[in-house]
Structures are given as structure tokens and as C-alpha cells.
Amino acid sequence: MSEDTNYIRIAKAIEYIHQNFKEQPSLSEIAEHIHLSQAHFQRIFTEWAGISPKKFLQYISLEHAKSILKNHKENSVLNATLETGFSSSSRLHDLFIRIEGMTPAEYKNGGESLQINYSFSETIFGSIVIASTAKGICYMAFTENYEDAFSQLKTQFSNAKFVQRQDELQQKAISILQSDHQDLSEIKLHLKGTEFQLKVWESLLKIPMGELTTYGAIAKDIGNHKASRAVGTAIGNNPVAFLIPCHRVIQSSGSFGGYMWGTTRKTAIIGWEGAKTHTSH
């Protein structure tokens, strides 16, 4: 069974768990909801998450999100680096992402001088489209339809030349979204955005895997504590799913809030990262 097919099934279970976590649904209740036997559900869920459904439930509860926020002094999360995420050599501690914003000319002309390679892949969180220039990853999005995904990509760089090819930059980035990865090389991002957006996206990169922060904390980190609403807009315009971890920003109440690629997927990623980080220590 493909990763994408498994995710579709798991997503239905996660959506049910997220909607009913206060009742702490049993394994049989969740399995029945997605029309699988308990044994089959337990097996595919554990294969996907690396942890049991019961443990996963703990990592997507509202109280868990609140405890993460409460146990960190404001902005302490943002002073950390990605290296503090996973400790195991097979995890993400070697990963470093550098932003290189497009020049004003590149930004203005819609990428007229750029060749953009793009490809489609299946990941543990569903299908993605990923694109890159010679300088770095410029776009990544979850998608349910490849044709629509490519149309959306073209609107981001209306004058660029597009070539359907998976290059080395894309392969390195995709490895993060696949089951295991070791000795990751530096991943560069070549982004189209305003100065304010780039600051917000850089701030997001400081949030370690398995941790969460708030819009207000991001605003404070970029030196404009009154800009929470503008920060939310910039996060909503994040062009690179998962690598720029906008899914790690939640409401100050502990509620996960919205996500460009669906609240169920955000819930899945937060739970998966929390569980993986916990089991690596």
C-alpha cells in the first residue's frame, strides 16, 4: 500500500481523534469509524506514526498543546535552532535551512530569467508538488490534484520556464518527508516574498521539531510585537510546506487553528512530530 493511500486512511482517523479527543475514544471506536479491524488499524497507524494510536492521541490533545506553550518562557522556543530537535543520528538534527530571497528584479518580473524544475511525490502526509531553481527550493505544497497543483505553481512565477524534473535539491528536501533520513546536507530556500514575509519565514525556521509557538511570539521575535495579524497573513502565504514549519504556530489558547493545507494535515504533522521527538529522547 502506498504512503499516500495510507495517509488518506490515517487522516480519517486523525480527524476523528481530533474532533473527539475530550472523550478519549478507544481503539475499537476509531477503527470502527474508518471501517477497519482493530488489528489492521493498529498496524497501519503504528507503521505510519511510529507510535500507537493511544500515544498519538496524547500528542494532539488541546491540553498537550497548552502544556508545551506553558512550559516555555515566551520566545525561548524561537531562540533554539533546528539542531535541538531530534537527538538521534538518523533524525533531523543535521538539517539546516538557509533562506535566499529573490532579487528585486526576480521578484518584479515573475521569475522571467528563472528555470524552475518541478516534480510530484508521495509522502507520509500525502502527495506534494515541489519546485526548485538553481539556488534552492522555491515552492512546495500538499495537493490532491497534480494538474491544479501545477497551475497554482505557475501563478507564483508567471514568466518562468518550467521543466518537469526532480533534481538533487528536491530529492534532499523530499527525504525529510519520507520515513527515515541520515546526514542531511544543507537545504537552501530561494523564496519570493517581501522583506516582512522573509523575516517571518526565517523566524518559523527557528522553531524546533516537536515544539509549538504562537503568532504573538513570532511577532515579538521579528521586533514588532503588535504585528500578530500581519504575521498570520505572512504565515498564510508560506510557499514551502513543512520545510518552513508554519504548522508549528498555534493560537495562544492552545487551539491548533487553521492551516493552508487543511487542519487535519496540520493535526497529523503536529502529532507525528511530537511523538517522534518524544521517542527519540
Rank of each mutant, 00 (worst) to 15 (best):
F45P: 14
S132N: 15
T155W: 00
I44D: 09
M140A: 05
S113A: 09
I97Q: 01
K135R: 13
L27Q: 10
F142M: 02
A217P: 09
D94A: 05
K276N: 13
F45Y: 09
Y107Q: 11
D148G: 05
K70W: 02
E63K: 03
M260E: 05
A234P: 00
T213L: 02
L62F: 11
A234Q: 08
H35V: 06
E74G: 02
G85N: 00
I218K: 02
G50H: 08
K276T: 15
I124V: 10
F242K: 05
R9E: 09
K199A: 08
Q156I: 04
F120Q: 06
K66G: 02
V231M: 08
I137Q: 11
L82M: 10
F157A: 00
F21H: 13
G274S: 12
K206S: 13
K161Q: 13
I218Q: 02
G136P: 15
T233G: 06
H278M: 10
N20L: 11
D94S: 14
M209T: 08
E186K: 01
K108H: 12
Q166T: 12
S228N: 13
A275R: 10
A31C: 12
S179L: 06
T194A: 03
I44N: 05
I60E: 02
S88Y: 04
E47K: 03
L212C: 05
G193M: 10
S179Q: 13
T84F: 11
E211F: 07
L57M: 13
K70I: 07
V240D: 03
D148V: 06
G254M: 05
S255L: 12
Y107N: 12
I207H: 01
K276W: 01
S132P: 15
S26Q: 14
F242V: 03
E15Q: 12
F125T: 14
L69I: 03
E211L: 01
G193K: 09
H72P: 02
F21C: 08
R248Y: 08
I270G: 01
V240N: 06
N237Y: 08
W261Y: 14
S253L: 09
Q152M: 05
F162C: 05
A11E: 11
S26G: 12
S89M: 09
R98P: 00
R248V: 08
L27G: 12
Q115G: 09
I97L: 02
A105Y: 08
R248P: 10
G110M: 03
A141K: 09
E211M: 02
I207C: 01
T279Q: 12
G111H: 03
H18N: 06
S252T: 10
I250Y: 00
F196K: 13
